[in-house]
């Protein structure tokens, strides 16, 4: 069944892999991006070349008006959002003693406030349809904590609490709300960490390597599908077995 999907931060990394997977499953996908229009266009073109259907839609997902405008555009061009994937995320790493208020606020706004804004907007249509899937990308940092990432870890832990709460609110209407918590995945975000850190990380991972965006996308694809109809409020960890 072809549904309307919106992937925030869908132009690169995990978001792009999710957008591509949902498109191959036959869904019409809105690829949200903040500033990198070229990357979003490239993702849309790749989906089209593979026989899928996608559009690019710009929005700052931490901003209420911008989110409202994005849902209006997606609603007009594709229809009411049935599958929402909250993937947009940034890091502004620092020890908390050296972390400025801006670094805290920016991360909470883009990573967590966005999830509240987009979920609220999407739920209206999902309630009417009596069907919906919300899948938000959390992180193992949000479960285990990570020194140097207090802001990021707080935002990702916040997603888990949000997910469980909203799952309880809307479950009776056929809407499931879940999270996926990736570990170290090869993306621009982890490239920025440098070889030394990623090599050290690999040694703590049972599978002995970093994950690929497609391996996270597969988990998102499952939770977004009809197959996951009895799974809600869950956080699925996709980390290759960190520190087992």
């Amino acid at each position: 069944m072809s549904r309307v999907a919106l992937v925030t931060g869908g132009s690169r990394g995990i978001g792009r892999a999710v957008a591509e997977l949902l498109a191959t499953q036959g869904h019409r996908v809105a690829v949200n991006y903040t500033a990198n229009e070229a990357a979003a266009d490239a993702a849309v073109e790749a989906i089209a070349a593979a026989g899928g259907s996608a559009i690019a839609v710009q929005a700052d997902v931490g901003d209420a008006d911008s989110v409202t405008a994005m849902f209006a555009v997606v609603g007009e061009r594709l229809g009411s959002v049935e599958i929402l994937v909250n993937n947009a995320g940034i890091t502004r790493d620092a020890l908390v003693l050296r972390m400025g208020v801006e670094a805290w606020d920016e991360v909470i706004e883009t990573n967590l406030r966005s999830v509240y804004l987009t979920s609220k907007a999407a739920l209206r249509g999902m309630l009417r349809a009596r069907w919906g899937r919300i899948v938000s990308i959390s992180s193992v940092s949000g479960i285990a904590g990570n020194p140097g990432q207090a802001n990021y870890a707080a935002s990702k832990a916040g997603i888990i609490g949000f997910t469980k709460s909203v799952a309880g609110e809307v479950g009776s209407r056929g809407i499931t709300v879940n999270a996926v918590a990736p570990g170290f995945i090869e993306t621009d975000m982890t490239d920025a960490l440098g070889d030394e850190i990623t090599t050290a990380a690999s040694e703590r991972i049972a599978l002995g390597r970093l994950g690929q965006p497609e391996e996270v996308a597969a988990a998102v694809g499952y939770l977004a599908s009809d197959d996951a109809s009895y799974v809600t409020g869950h956080t699925l960890v996709v980390d290759g077995g960190i520190a087992l």
């Binding site: 209206r124 309630l127 009417r128 609110e169 809307v170 009776s172 209407r173």
Partner: peptide
């Protein structure tokens, strides 16, 4: 009518 039902009614 549960609280979500009220929300739906208003919608």
């Amino acid at each position: 009518v549960d609280s979500l039902g009220v929300v739906e009614l208003l919608m």
